[in-house]
Amino acid sequence: MITDIISEDDRWRGLGLDALAETAARAALNHLNLDPGQYDIAVLACDDARIATLNADFRGKPTPTNVLSWPAWDLSAEVEGAAPDDAPPGSEADPESLGDIAISWDTCAREAAESGKSMPDHVSHLIVHGILHLLGYDHVRDGDATLMEGHETAILGKMGIDDPYRDD
């Protein structure tokens, strides 16, 4: 298993987050030509109250959000639109941690309903999004956002999930 799920909210169990996160992690790492067996990721499945506290503590924003990530390393590219540095590989016997992700049930459910997406598809997108952040991708600068969103769209497409950035 690449993902280690820590669930603080029982609603996540009914969704099958374990399988969704594992599938999303494998798809993201395979897309970037990284061996999934060499890495692990901790995922905190929580609610809006918990993620708002985390968002306040780590980003100074005391509001809920859909997903947060804490990369093990700063792999970000200095040049806008350039690929981040490669994550150092672990091994099958001793996988390297890419970092931690937290995801909120309440915000994810609200966003999925508002956008007419299924909850599993939306959560899969957010897990992929969080993993890309762990790998040094970002969306603050336009060139970086274009690169990150292109990867998200390609990964999700391989998973049979529609482009989350397409306006219909």
Rank of each mutant, 00 (worst) to 15 (best):
S104N: 01
F58K: 13
D86S: 10
P120W: 10
L44T: 11
G81A: 08
D106G: 07
L134T: 02
D94P: 00
L20M: 06
G37I: 06
L68C: 02
G90H: 05
A145P: 03
A49T: 12
T3F: 03
A52Y: 01
D40M: 10
D35H: 07
A112K: 06
A24F: 01
D168K: 11
G81C: 07
T53Q: 13
S118P: 05
A83C: 00
V123Y: 07
I51W: 03
L132N: 06
P88H: 00
D100G: 12
P71M: 11
N66V: 15
Q38F: 13
W73N: 14
A27N: 05
P71Q: 08
I5G: 01
S115R: 15
P62D: 04
L54R: 09
G37H: 14
A145M: 08
P120G: 07
A28Y: 00
E114S: 11
N55H: 05
L126A: 10
A83K: 05
D47K: 02
S97K: 07
G99V: 03
D100F: 06
D168S: 13
A49Y: 04
V128D: 04
S104F: 02
R166P: 00
A56D: 12
D85P: 00
H151K: 13
P88L: 06
H151Y: 10
C108R: 02
P71F: 12
D162L: 10
D48M: 02
A56H: 12
D40A: 11
A83Q: 11
D168C: 01
S115A: 13
R166E: 09
D94H: 14
P71G: 13
T146P: 01
A42G: 06
L134C: 08
L20W: 02
I155K: 03
R50T: 14
G157H: 01
T65K: 09
E152K: 03
D4M: 13
A145Q: 03
E149Y: 13
S7T: 14
P88Q: 08
L15E: 07
A27P: 00
V67G: 03
G116W: 09
I41K: 12
L54D: 11
H151A: 08
P84N: 03
D142G: 04
I51R: 08
G160W: 15
A112R: 07
I161Q: 01
T63C: 04
A21W: 11
P95K: 07
A52D: 02
S97D: 01
D57Y: 04
A45I: 07
A154I: 02
A24P: 00
D94Y: 09
A28R: 06
L34N: 08
V128G: 00
I101K: 08
A21V: 02
G99L: 05
G157F: 06
